[in-house]
């Protein structure tokens, strides 16, 4: 649709879609189902989709700048780029979680081991007390 205006019904459809997306994202953040840091890109996509409808000459300018044949190609490229960036953000976050989970599981294994040792030591002290009938000073079985 190079050089021509977008039909009115298309404009309305794009604007409504962009606004609905914005509302969904804002609601998810409000209900704490999505963290603010992940909403930034989604909000940008929603806002840009509304802006580009009204500033169609801007889309045409970008099309000429990047050498795309059609404005629809530009829009498709922009959408693909947005999805790639979202994926990248998720991959970075997943990697961070993997580091954290590893550290937690390792720490948990060592703590469980220490707890087991403490329980075994406590059990041994109880058995020593039971066998002798008297309570010894802590850790010193030779103390009368």
């Amino acid at each position: 649709m190079n050089g021509a205006e977008i039909p009115a019904n298309q404009k309305v459809f794009i604007i409504i879609t962009g606004l609905v997306l914005l509302c969904i994202v804002i609601e998810l953040v409000r209900r704490r189902k999505m963290l603010e840091q992940y909403s930034a890109l989604w909000i940008l996509i929603g806002v840009l989709s509304v802006i580009f409808v009204w500033l169609y000459p801007l889309v045409e300018w970008i099309t000429a700048l990047i050498g795309a044949g059609w404005t629809t190609s530009t829009i498709l490229f922009g959408a693909t780029l947005a999805l790639l960036l979202l994926n990248l953000q998720i991959c970075v976050k997943i990697s961070e979680f993997q580091y954290n989970i590893k550290d937690i599981v390792q720490e948990l294994a060592m703590l469980a081991d220490q707890v087991q040792k403490m329980q075994e030591n406590a059990g041994r002290r109880n058995r020593n007390t039971t066998v002798s009938g008297t309570t010894h000073a802590s850790g010193d079985p030779d103390t009368p």
Partner: peptide
């Protein structure tokens, strides 16, 4: 023995 609560893989295991 130390036991992992979930499987982490060889590298994480030796790092423990």
């Amino acid at each position: 023995t130390l036991s992992h609560s979930t499987q982490l893989g060889y590298g994480s295991t030796i790092q423990t």
